[in-house]
Design a protein around this nucleic acid. Structure first.
Lengths: 225, 225
DNA sequence: TTGTTAAACTTGACGCTGTCAAGTTGAAAG
DNA sequence: CTTTCAACTTGACAGCGTCAAGTTTAACAA
């Protein structure tokens, strides 16, 4: 035996001998595979049975780590919020950015995050979790600071004279969130007819909110990473 | 036999004698009952089997009028668009309205329609139908004019100097739609934490787009019907 | 009046789903 | 070496959408 005994016991789901008792990182494996499956086949396409088969365990194995399907979805969304906050802080908490640049980044970055993680975004901000009080406490603890952060940003944009300062900050933040959320949803749900022009739509939104001439809006910053 | 023979054959789903062959308006009955069930228990809560039971027919009876579940959902959404256009035209195509009043009405009316027909709205503008090219031709024929109408309104608001006229009309219309859609979705999906202040959020959106002082925004028009 | 036809509706069956209860496995602790 | 208990499996159930094949019945033709 040269290989790690734990890893060895985990591997080989096609093994015909019945040594499939994991005793390993099944929790994490389920989460990872489920996140992957969701991005591939949508939230509706994820079934606990298919997930179990793909991870190489029996159909009800996941019930030892997640109370039910909703609990698993909440855990996936939770990771999504952590990812979102991490990337947002990385892109926006840069002192060399002007308020204008920061706002521009925020809008484009928000919509891009949603587009690049369509099913994850739907899970994070969609009806499946929030509509009928389905969210777990752990999820709420990660999700709320995410909006609080957006509120902070809005306050900053107001203080820098970028957007109307004679308007309630909370309301403004809600409107701005509504706008980027709405654009993202119309985009990823396939309702906008010309999806290639989303960047332009974002720029128009920025122009409307900041009351700048259209020519001022497009920055010379390369957004491609 | 005093009653209408057709109506008679339709009625009495609890009848123990096996005279449940409808030969009536089952198509319309299915549509009506399904629309009702969706608004009660959500899109996910609607099953063809429960629908059939409630209408008083066998589980597969609906397949004679709708190709599959998706086809039924499209038909319901189609009716939703017709309702939306009817109410929008009724409320907004009033010559006595100023551009400002019309814009104010549009925003509040849009969000209210979504709120009062939550599940129908989700069906009309949600992923279930649009995401994977699931829409029927009949649905598309009703849905597209709905956005065209919003484009016309936007052009009008621009011409009346209410919103920026140096911006591409199509882009502006897409942004405005995105905003009201986003506000509506965050509201009905239960993501906004204080749902009672949606009217204020709408007013803030109006203020942002029209560049008016907040005090100018709230009109003295009673929106309650 | 009787026979035919075709549309309207039903029954049976299949594979899929989430989930509960009860049984099995196997590593680790005594 | 035995006990214990978490980890995992198997069996079962009700529900779902949908297809194929069968039954009912209104309407029309002879």
């Amino acid at each position: 035996m040269t290989s790690n005994p734990i890893k060895n016991s985990v591997s080989n789901s096609t093994n015909s001998t019945k040594s499939n008792y994991h005793h390993g990182d099944l929790h994490q494996q389920l989460l990872n595979k489920a996140t992957l499956m969701i991005e591939e086949g949508g939230i509706e396409g994820l079934s606990l049975r298919k997930l179990a088969t793909r991870v190489g365990v029996s159909r009800t194995a996941s019930y030892h780590y997640f109370k039910d399907k909703n609990d698993l979805l909440c855990a996936i969304a939770e990771n999504g919020y952590k990812l979102r906050i991490k990337t947002a802080l990385m892109n926006l908490n840069n002192d060399s950015l002007s308020a204008r640049e920061q706002f521009h980044f925020f809008v484009h970055d928000y919509v891009r995050f949603a587009y690049e993680n369509q099913e994850l975004y739907e899970l994070m901000f969609g009806r499946a979790i929030w509509k009928q009080q389905n969210s777990t406490q752990a999820l709420r603890d990660v999700a709320y600071p995410c909006f609080q952060y957006q509120l902070e940003l809005t306050k900053n944009w107001q203080q820098n004279g970028l957007i109307k300062s004679d308007e309630n900050t909370l309301r403004l933040a809600q409107v701005i969130w509504g706008t980027v959320h709405g654009i993202a949803k119309l985009l990823i749900d396939g309702i906008y007819t010309h999806t290639s022009q989303v960047e332009e739509i974002c720029d128009s939104a920025i122009a409307l909110f900041t009351n700048m001439a259209p020519s001022d809006v497009v920055l010379k910053v390369d957004l491609d990473s």
